[in-house]
Simulated scan of single mutants.
Amino acid sequence: MSFAHRIKSEICSNRPFRQRRQRAMACGLLSFGGRFDRDAISIHTEHRKVARLYADSITDLVGISGSITVQEIRRGDRRSIFAVKVDSSADRAAVLLAFGRDADLEVWPVPDSPDEIPAFLSGAFLACGGISDPEKSYHLEFATQRKELCALLEQLLAGQIAAPKATVRRNDYLLYYKESEQIEDLLTLIGAPRSALELMEVKIVKDLRNKVNRATNCETANITRTVNTAVEQIEDIRLIEQSGGIGMLPEELQELARLRLSGADLSLRQLGEQLSPPISRSGVNHRLKRISEFAENLRAKGPQTE
């Protein structure tokens, strides 16, 4: 079951939330569903509970049921589509009247008070909302083919959460959020607090995982640099051995050169502790640089012929 499917299930099952503002939620469902005019009142959804809620809302609020049909359309291996429609023209007229659609169909039902906005937005999300899997990305969107409805929804969202981003995709007007905090706030607002908490938990785990990965990558990079540096130092010392022996080096460098040859994995601090007398890490680093410079001078002179 997808994250979006779980959210819509939670909203449909949140009886205290939807019963307090049943009409406002139904307004959102009807307005942002498929059709809401004299010729058709219908919705197509992949969610069985959304389809049932759509039909029940009309029955409860308008008092009709005989001409409401709910049909499951199977699509092979894919998820079924549930189609709900009001068949009778007289019943469609009753629904339009009950929800305040005027005779010219220019007015859409809107929340009667600020307290009803969350339920209206909840119905809009059930009808046309979608959300990505938070394990992959943070993205919640509303999609409608009606420009005037998109403008209304944008205004309501901006007043409740924050102004959403807007774009057009094919024939749809889209409003969307990509900030996890805004998505969490919206899910809580529209009656899906458990899903909001789930998103928060996913975000926390992802943040911790990213921190661990960054620390691991940093540690790996440091180890790689240390190993590469030690390999270069050993190559320098072996060149010195082959060119005349470690005894060619100044006396204070000879012990360190032998230690490095026998302890390729030793850190600068560990090398310094094993010297007699011990010296600091910076002192070891300085002496190794002198050994490197000595080797570079040998390379610059090239092979010596007798």
Score class of each variant (00 low, 15 high):
13 S>F: 10
111 P>Y: 14
274 Q>T: 06
232 E>F: 14
46 E>T: 00
100 G>Y: 08
238 R>T: 11
190 I>M: 12
149 L>T: 01
178 K>W: 10
194 R>L: 03
131 I>M: 15
45 T>S: 02
289 K>W: 04
37 D>I: 08
276 S>F: 06
204 I>R: 09
153 L>W: 01
258 R>S: 11
119 A>Q: 04
131 I>V: 15
256 L>R: 02
108 W>L: 07
185 D>E: 12
107 V>T: 08
170 R>D: 15
158 A>K: 04
72 E>C: 04
243 S>K: 09
207 D>A: 06
137 S>C: 07
261 L>E: 04
3 F>V: 05
11 I>G: 11
193 P>M: 11
263 G>S: 05
25 M>I: 03
258 R>D: 08
250 P>E: 05
223 I>D: 12
173 Y>R: 13
203 K>Y: 00
186 L>W: 08
160 Q>E: 15
279 I>E: 01
279 I>H: 02
294 F>H: 12
245 G>E: 09
193 P>W: 06
199 L>A: 04
156 L>I: 01
159 G>S: 10
99 F>D: 03
25 M>L: 15
138 Y>A: 12
191 G>R: 02
110 V>H: 12
143 A>K: 12
71 Q>W: 07
265 D>E: 07
3 F>H: 08
121 L>D: 05
288 L>N: 06
141 E>K: 07
175 L>R: 02
96 L>N: 01
84 V>I: 11
241 E>C: 13
254 Q>G: 08
33 G>I: 02
18 R>P: 03
229 T>N: 15
295 A>K: 08
107 V>N: 11
215 A>N: 14
204 I>A: 05
210 N>S: 04
257 A>D: 10
18 R>H: 15
25 M>Q: 08
83 A>I: 04
93 A>W: 00
31 S>P: 03
251 E>M: 03
183 I>H: 11
47 H>T: 03
278 P>E: 10
70 V>G: 09
284 V>I: 07
218 C>Y: 15
205 V>T: 05
94 A>S: 09
277 P>K: 06
41 I>R: 06
273 E>T: 13
128 C>E: 04
103 A>C: 00
306 E>H: 13
157 L>G: 00
12 C>A: 15
203 K>D: 08
53 L>T: 11
193 P>F: 10
297 N>L: 10
112 D>E: 15
232 E>N: 13
32 F>C: 03
220 T>D: 14
136 K>G: 05
91 D>S: 03
300 A>H: 09
87 D>E: 12
252 E>K: 07
261 L>N: 01
264 A>D: 05
148 E>L: 01
28 G>M: 11
9 S>W: 02
248 M>T: 09
13 S>G: 12
157 L>C: 02
